Amino acid sequence: MAASLRILAGLAFLAVTSAALLSPFAVVGQLTTDYYAGICPNLETIVRSSVRQSMAASPIAAPATLRLFFHDCAVRGCDASVMIVNSNGDDEWRSSDNQSLKPEGFTTVLNAKAAVDSDPRCRYKVSCADILALAARESVYQSGGPYYQVELGRHDGRVSTRDNVVLPHASFNLHQLNAFFTGLGLSQTDMIALSGGHTFGAADCRFFQYRVGADPSMDAAFASELRNTCGAGAGANPSGGGFAFLDGATPATFDNAYYQNLQRGRGLLGSDQALHADQRSRGTVDYYAGSQSAFFSDFAAAMTRLGRVGVKSAATGEIRRDCRFPN
């Protein structure tokens, strides 16, 4: 996030955005886990195989895809508008708040879309928004995280503009984080669970370096490690060439180590460490740190609720043939 958090390996997971102006559950009744059963019966198998190939090709494909899903849903709702490319350059992914998004996330979804459309039964019948939601689940599951049923039946949006993009900052405190997620119809517990998406991925030095040696909540040994990574002083490495893993303990695995890091003062971003620093959220952090199963269960539930934000129907959206362009 930079004015949002610019995450290199992307989020981890992580308004009020234009999505906050939408009723988060307006069209949720159309979503079902078996929506494509009679349309594209092998959909999940196809997406699973494609995501596996993308993850084998790049170690950052999984976190990049998870972050793409969040950045999409948090702006105009879960409608794959973040993937639209406008010829005039006025689109979401070219917003400064979205420069954290890595090409590997887009590639993972585009490859999955191509694989789905290669099946004659499925061709041009499955939305990019649904493929993105499935790819995000597979990125989590195939990295060791929870498996959960994905509600499907979204239609793709037709509009993508930079001015709609507002995302959390890396320096947000608990109050600011709660305000953002409340705008999406999500609770503090949802926010803390979704923040666990920072269990994999990495962040550019410029988004946490200001804390090194200045934030007393940061573990001294951790601060020393980051100083070596990014250079001394807040002004070092202005090009953002350095980065650090959001979860240095198990950076490629989806687990609950992120919360254990927060307990030790080893949260990379200010918005991460704030979850343990504030008494109002510390109990939930400690709960997830001690119970991976509780984290997995709440993360799956929060992802389901996130996936309902701003859902488009056939009347307000379409099934894009190419995820990059409206039909």
Rank of each mutant, 00 (worst) to 15 (best):
V140G: 11
F245R: 01
D204T: 04
D204C: 00
E104L: 04
N86H: 06
F325E: 10
S4K: 08
S195G: 12
V47A: 10
Q279K: 06
A112Y: 14
D91R: 06
A294W: 01
R280K: 11
M83Q: 11
L269W: 05
Y259N: 10
S171H: 09
I60W: 01
S49W: 01
T33C: 02
L177R: 01
C205V: 07
R227N: 15
V126I: 10
S4G: 15
D156V: 01
A302T: 07
D298E: 13
Y258M: 12
Q53I: 10
S23K: 14
G270Y: 04
P168L: 06
A302Y: 13
N111C: 07
R305W: 08
R67Q: 13
A301P: 00
F70E: 12
I7E: 15
K312L: 15
A115V: 12
L269T: 06
A64I: 08
T65E: 14
S127R: 07
A300R: 00
H276T: 02
S18R: 13
Q142D: 14
N88P: 09
E318I: 13
G248C: 01
Q53K: 11
G38Y: 09
A3E: 07
S239Q: 13
V311L: 08
A74G: 09
D130T: 10
G283L: 04
A221L: 09
H175T: 15
R158M: 14
G235V: 00
D163M: 04
A220Y: 13
D255T: 06
V212T: 06
L275M: 14
S50P: 05
A80W: 10
G248F: 08
P326N: 06
V82R: 00
C122W: 05
I7L: 15
S18M: 05
T161C: 00
D163Y: 15
S95C: 11
F208D: 07
T229R: 12
F180L: 06
L66W: 12
A114R: 05
I84A: 06
C323F: 11
A3W: 00
P63V: 08
A64R: 01
L43M: 07
G213K: 01
